[in-house]
Design a binder for these strands. Structure first.
Lengths: 209, 209
DNA sequence: GTTTAAATTAAACAACTGTTTAATTTTGTA
DNA sequence: TACAAAATTAAACAGTTGTTTAATTTAAAC
């Protein structure tokens, strides 16, 4: 079997791995945990991916491929700069929501040791993201809608960081905001958190000191 | 020896543990790693703290005690609301910078399993923080300086999340912004990132749609 | 139906995990 | 100095870890 091609079994393993990694961390998840949950033999992980480390690499590659495309499509759209920024925010939030756990792994398991291969894929993704954001912001600046003295590389951290921090403290906010069900939590993200971030970024982009 | 009292040796172990936990995660760090780095016997961790889990609890308690006090002092200061917010941001950033790794552990090792004791201490800290922020914002609203339709619980995530995301992607930003030394990185935080966050929050607080 | 490769399995591997034990050394006190 | 408590140690503990092996089953090709 090819190492690159992802058949059903491989994908099934990746999905279980994502779920468990995000729940218990990379080190906290054993191959036995994965194979138990995925109902496969322990040896299959090594058989398919070679090692636990390379399973992580495959997982990251699998999950970060199409965001790039999504952003490039947004760039081409012919809409107001501010609407484009708002759409960008929605794409980010949707992305992280969909890929729930993987971002946790990305940010926290990747900063450690070697893992250079996985890290490089992630770095390239971030560079591409930044270029898209830069392009969108500059469109707005050229049209005189956005202020010129913006620190563009810090805009993505503001968007993703806010959302991420909210998500990381999920149980705290669930209690604080009385979000009893999964649905209520997701609705709050959709209706309140997204709006807050959009409002924040708008204020940052257009507010003249 | 008392379980609560922290003598030099206990503190030394806690500091090594913080460093290693933040570097390799809680599960990724073994007691043998800690005792090797701290130049003590393996059994000493159990002897002092009882278990690895309770070592984590002690670490969190040890690191989150005085932030509360710091915020309450800020509340009493008689300065402009906006200056107070800016000071709040500086306190947060300074805090996380000083306690480098522990916040990583706090956010990512605590969300998992039981660990209720550690988690409760952290939740209480967050509740106290929120109350402080609320109080400061309301002062500004009463004075007519801040807008009234703010989602106050989402302000802390905006501040800390932004900073945290920047810190978590440290190596990416080091390369992007050409921050070659530790000093340059810290200076960027002090001069640029802090300013960006303060500017963002100010815009959010005072910008009328 | 036979052959060949892929998929799957149970078992074993050595290394590492957190914790406990029991013996020894150090320290403080009377 | 003698005694008791605290600190420190090496060794062993039972489990778990990621990975490999060699045998067996399944699937595909001819």
């Amino acid at each position: 079997m090819s190492n690159i091609e992802l058949n059903d079994k491989k994908i099934q393993i990746l999905e279980v791995a994502e779920s468990l990694f995000s729940e218990k961390g990379f080190e906290g998840t054993s191959i036995r945990d994965i194979s138990k949950e995925a109902k496969i033999n322990i040896a299959m992980v090594s058989y398919y991916f070679g090692s636990k480390e390379r399973l992580l690499e495959a997982l990251i590659l699998h999950k970060t491929t199409d965001l790039k495309l999504q952003l490039e499509n947004l760039l081409q759209e012919n809409i107001e700069p501010l609407d484009k920024v708002n759409k960008l925010i929605e794409i980010y939030i949707n992305r992280i929501c969909l890929n729930k756990g993987i971002y946790r792994v990305l940010h926290f398991e990747l900063n450690n040791k070697k893992r250079e291969k996985s890290l490089n894929a992630f770095t390239e993704l971030k560079k591409g993201n930044l270029k898209s954001v830069e392009s969108i912001i500059k469109q707005g600046q050229d049209q005189g809608v956005f202020r010129k003295d913006l620190n563009i590389p810090l805009i993505t951290p503001t968007i993703i960081g806010t959302f991420f921090h909210f998500h990381m403290n999920r149980s705290f906010f669930e209690e604080l905001l009385d979000l009893k069900t999964e649905e209520m939590f997701n609705n709050y993200i959709k209706n309140n958190l997204t709006k807050h971030i959009q409002q924040t970024i708008k204020a940052l982009l257009v507010y003249e000191n």
